[in-house]
């Protein structure tokens, strides 16, 4: 027994000696905080991109799921961590652009208090309705909703979620803020009731709804992106369908606390770019229906600009949204 203990103690001491030596960044695994439960769209993108980034960095990127309060718990932890480049976070539209308007007591400032790295992937948003909804295109749908806002039920996955944020913007664009909004705990149960016809419509990310659309269990009116998605080539864009004001994407991007060493930022940007240029990684993301970011959006400045653009778009609508 004693011998075993001594041996283990010796092993520990050796491990200590190896780890304590100072090296160039990254000298140890980098923690990437995902502020949502494992298996969700953000988590999957973080794991796909992080897997390839680890190869470039030569150190493992460890995904740590810290869920809570619409993702703001995890981002708060990342942004209050030491700015040494070893703690970064994968946030999304909600945590970086919408959170300041949704959560008044937010402990981080996405516009001035973060070191952005770059965009990892965009996810188109679709307006979907139950299979037997009478309207045959977006124009008819908008007209029907505007004519009798009290008649329809809209589903979302809880205050702060992507579907809530994007649907609130949709209602803002339509000018019918007081629709019957039914809150669900997550997209899955909401989708279940949309398929069974209890709910009339919802807005959600393409990865959650594309297969249901293909199987004809629900119908899609439009995709709120600039271009059609290759995953659903028959679904028109909002611009084509006559609602050009409704443009929103549920992107996911990487940021860390302000004050990170330049070396760390450069290496992370480089690793992200290499991951997004890698064909197998790209294919994985495209399979999800994600959009590969442009060269501009993959830079810290480009990503920061995107955060600001969407924050400007969402803040007025969310601030006045009935809660």
């Amino acid at each position: 027994m004693k011998k075993l203990t001594l041996g283990l103690a010796a092993a520990f001491t050796l491990a200590l000696a190896g780890g304590a030596m100072a090296q160039a960044y990254p000298a140890r695994p980098v923690t990437m905080i995902v502020p949502f439960a494992a298996g969700g769209p953000t988590d999957i993108i973080a794991r796909i991109v992080g897997d390839h980034m680890s190869k470039t960095l030569g150190q493992q990127i460890v995904i740590e799921n810290v869920a809570g309060a619409g993702g703001t718990t995890g981002i708060t932890r990342a942004m209050t961590a030491a700015p040494d480049g070893y703690t970064i976070a994968m946030g999304h539209l909600g945590t970086f652009s919408a959170a300041p308007a949704t959560y008044p007591g937010l402990k981080y400032d996405p516009l001035n208090g973060m070191q952005t790295i770059g965009l990892a992937g965009g996810t188109p948003i679709l307006i979907v309705a139950k299979k037997n909804f009478p309207a045959k295109d977006l124009k008819e749908f908008v007209a029907a909703v505007k004519a009798a806002p009290d008649k329809f039920n809209e589903a979302h996955a809880g205050v702060g979620s992507v579907s809530w944020t994007t649907c609130t913007l949709f209602k803002g664009v339509l000018g019918v803020p007081k629709l019957n909004a039914v809150a669900y705990r997550g997209t899955g149960p909401a989708l279940n009731d949309l398929v069974s016809g209890q709910i009339d419509f919802m807005c959600d990310q393409i990865v959650s709804v594309s297969e249901q659309i293909k199987a004809d269990t629900i119908k899609a009116y439009a995709v709120a992106s600039a271009e059609r998605s290759p995953a659903l080539p028959n679904v028109p864009t909002t611009k084509e369908a006559g609602l050009p004001d409704y443009q929103i994407e549920a992107w996911n991007g990487i940021a860390g606390p302000k004050g990170m060493p330049k070396e760390a930022v450069d290496k992370l940007v480089d690793a992200l770019n290499k991951a997004l240029n890698d064909e197998p990684t790209k294919k994985r993301l495209l399979d999800l229906g994600a959009v590969i970011p442009s060269a501009e959006e993959r830079t810290p400045a480009g990503f920061q600009a995107l955060i600001k653009r969407d924050a400007d778009k969402l803040t007025p609508v969310l601030a006045s949204a009935p809660k």
């Binding site: 494992a38 298996g39 969700g40 988590d43 999957i44 794991r47 796909i48 899955g188 990865v207 594309s210 297969e211 249901q212 293909k214 199987a215 269990t217 294919k283 994985r284 399979d287 999800l288 229906g289």
Partner: peptide, 14 residues
């Protein structure tokens, strides 16, 4: 579902 999507199979009725 996440595991299936990572492997390129998006679960659905099909």
């Amino acid at each position: 579902v996440g595991a299936m999507t990572i492997h390129g199979i998006i679960p659905g009725p099909q």
